[in-house]
């Protein structure tokens, strides 16, 4: 009954109103996208917010990390960096152990997980001994605990994620403002 009432609302709309309904949905998605892109520009990182899967004891699973990646800030030992490794889809959050800088500004560094016994050379691409500036996604600047667990659950149960997204999308499309 309720469902029919909803549809009746839509049926009374003309083409312009229906088009605006679509645009309204597009604007909600766009706002989220543009905030994300805006953060990218401000922080200089291609992924300014990441969810920690494991980096104990510094961060717990599900913590939300806020990253910046300014070129002019040098990388220092002790910092927590997020980096990509060739052949791995998910970036890694680990601490910088050793840094070598050259006069021309190029830098190479080695990382290690706080809870690991050995450094990360075993995790790097085959034959790679050091990380370079271009591997860095960002450096941790702040964190919010636990919130990211929602994302982790969503990704663990993709069907649940798509069901929630489809439900929300349908609601916005069908519901007249």
């Amino acid at each position: 009954m309720l469902q029919l009432d909803f549809l009746d609302d839509l049926r009374r709309m003309n083409m312009r109103q229906l088009f605006y309904q679509l645009l309204n949905f597009a604007m909600i998605v766009s706002s989220a996208l543009m905030i994300w892109k805006g953060l990218m520009v401000v922080t200089g990182s291609e992924s300014p917010i990441v969810v920690v899967l494991s980096m104990e004891p510094a961060f717990q699973r599900g913590d939300l990390l806020f990253l910046t990646n300014y070129e002019q800030e040098p990388i220092r030992a002790g910092e927590i960096v997020v980096f990509k490794v060739e052949g791995r889809d998910i970036p890694i959050v680990h601490r910088v152990m050793k840094v070598h800088e050259k006069e021309d500004g190029s830098v190479k560094f080695l990382t290690k997980g706080d809870n690991n016994n050995v450094d990360d050379r075993g995790l790097y691409a085959n034959g790679q001994a050091w990380l370079n500036r271009k591997d860095v996604v960002g450096r941790a600047r702040g964190y919010v605990p636990f919130i990211g667990i929602v994302t982790i659950i969503m990704n663990d149960y993709p069907k649940f994620k798509y069901a929630v997204l489809a439900g929300l999308g349908l609601f916005v499309l069908v519901h007249r403002e």
Partner: peptide
Amino acid sequence: LLDGRLIISSVAVGFSIFAL
């Protein structure tokens, strides 16, 4: 009046699609 709103929203969405 509605056409004006449609144009403004379309341009806005256009920017985000272009960015994507």
